[in-house]
Design a protein around this nucleic acid. Structure first.
Length: 288
DNA sequence: CACTCGTGGGC
DNA sequence: TGCCCAAGAGT
């Protein structure tokens, strides 16, 4: 469907798109899948160097699948949410063993890969294979909330109404370009904190701007605390394992977190998640 | 569904 | 300076 939004946003994208390596024609499905998982909850500028290193080191799913999972975790560096590294490694092995070494093209098959949810399956099907899907990431949801619904922020969880709206906006031609254009607008102009409406190609028809940019009026948007949490503790512990090539004695982990109860809980969590292993001598390492 | 899961930078 | 957010997924 063509609306007052399509042409302005597509034209704006043609002029303002960032030159990101996973958007170039030579980027294949594997490169795109890796980028999408790295980009989950993670800014582009931090993904760029890690993605580049991964693509040089593991240009194909088979190359990564041949490694132990710990190598994926090690080269994840400080991207955050390191279970994504395990997910990508598991994707590589699934693609290699079940899909002949090629990333599957269909949404349903993609969706079954570890770490591939609704967004990532739609994004890969769209960007790597040219399929038409509603690609609902945080940027798209925010742009539609403002431009169409007239609200500053979308609901906390994606609703059926949002999905229906996004699907109703799918163009007959080149849905992938539409998807990436809306995402880019949300990332560069229609940002969460300080939207740059003066630079927005759809400012004239934006329901939220026309309503005077009313402040968010929904349920509390709870911020994430971090200092002192298990997440911070897990991060510290895993950093030690990443930086040590090989096994580390438990004492090397004990020194990075004072609270022993929390430290043990976090360590157990890392092991349960497959991010760490205990050796018979009591030393720890990344999963082999 | 609410909660967990890292990390760093911008405002 | 702290708070908020960033191409979400799994449970």
């Amino acid at each position: 469907m063509a609306t007052a939004l399509h042409a302005p946003i597509l034209d704006w994208y043609a002029e303002n798109a960032r030159d990101l390596p996973w958007r170039r024609p030579e980027a294949g499905p594997w490169a795109i899948l890796v980028s999408e998982i790295m980009l989950q909850q993670t800014p582009v500028v931090r993904v760029l160097p890690v993605w580049t290193e991964w693509m040089e080191r593991w240009p194909t799913p088979a190359a990564l699948a041949a490694e132990p999972p710990g190598e994926a975790v090690r080269h994840w560096g400080r991207l955050g949410y390191p279970r994504r590294a395990l997910n990508l490694h598991a994707c590589a092995r699934a693609v290699t063993s079940e899909h002949g070494g090629r990333v599957p093209q269909g949404y349903e098959e993609l969706r079954r890969l570890p770490g591939v949810g609704d967004y990532t399956a739609a994004a890969v099907a769209s960007f790597a294979f040219g399929r038409s899907h509603a690609v609902l990431d945080t940027n798209v949801r925010r742009v539609l909330a403002r431009a169409v619904r007239g609200e500053e922020y979308p609901p906390k969880a994606t609703t059926a109404a949002e999905r229906k709206l996004a699907e109703s906006l799918l163009p007959a031609l080149d849905a992938p370009r539409w998807a990436v254009a809306v995402m880019e607008l949300g990332a560069l102009v229609c940002t969460a904190r300080a939207p740059r409406c003066a630079d927005c190609p759809v400012a004239a028809s934006c329901a939220w701007r026309l309503a005077g940019r009313p402040a968010y009026d929904g349920p509390e948007r709870r911020g994430q605390t971090y200092a002192g949490t298990d997440r911070q503790c897990r991060g510290r512990l895993l950093a030690v394992l990443r930086e040590a090539h090989g096994a580390v004695p438990k004492a090397a982990l004990d020194v990075v977190w004072d609270d022993a109860v929390q430290r043990e809980r976090a360590l157990d969590g890392l092991i349960a998640d497959g991010l760490a292993q205990v050796l018979p001598d009591g030393a720890y390492r990344l999963p082999a």
